[in-house]
């Protein structure tokens, strides 16, 4: 049985690294507007965004593995809420789009929506065990 050092999802290093990566993703998106589609700099900036996104996923997985069993359960419930909630909202709005509501760029809004639902799910699940 492997004992795990106590950790917290409020680890300042994880939060700082996430903010830096988010700034890189947003900064690259902003900088890319200055270049034409298909140009080398624009493709390079898009690659930077992809790599930063992959780093966020890797770091999230790494930080989850450091949590203890209750905190992992809380995160699992929060992620389930975010995953299912995003699917329901996106699919539901797609039907509304077909019915005539304005189209939404889901490529841009899916991740922020998922992050918002994760935060809401975390607060809900965390409260259950507090």
């Amino acid at each position: 049985m492997r004992e795990r050092a106590p950790s917290s999802c409020y680890d300042p290093q994880v939060i700082a690294a996430t903010l830096v990566l988010a700034a890189v993703i947003i900064g690259a998106a902003w900088a890319a507007k200055g270049f034409e589609k298909g140009s080398v700099p624009r493709i390079a900036l898009a690659s930077v965004q992809s790599l930063a996104t992959a780093a966020v996923i890797f770091m999230s997985t790494w930080s989850l593995r450091r949590l203890d069993e209750l905190q992992q359960r809380i995160q699992l419930q929060a992620l389930a809420i975010a995953f299912a909630g995003t699917g329901i909202i996106v699919m539901g709005y797609r039907w509304l789009e077909m019915a005539g509501l304005p189209a939404v760029d889901w490529g841009t809004f899916t991740w922020p929506l998922m992050a918002f639902l994760w935060a809401a799910g975390f607060l809900y699940s965390n409260r259950r065990y507090s």
Binding site: E3, R4, P6, L67, D68, E69, L70, Q71, Y129, S130
Partner: peptide
């Protein structure tokens, strides 16, 4: 126990 205080409390 190498867990969080929240876990002990829960």
């Amino acid at each position: 126990l190498k867990v969080s205080r929240q876990t002990v409390n829960a």
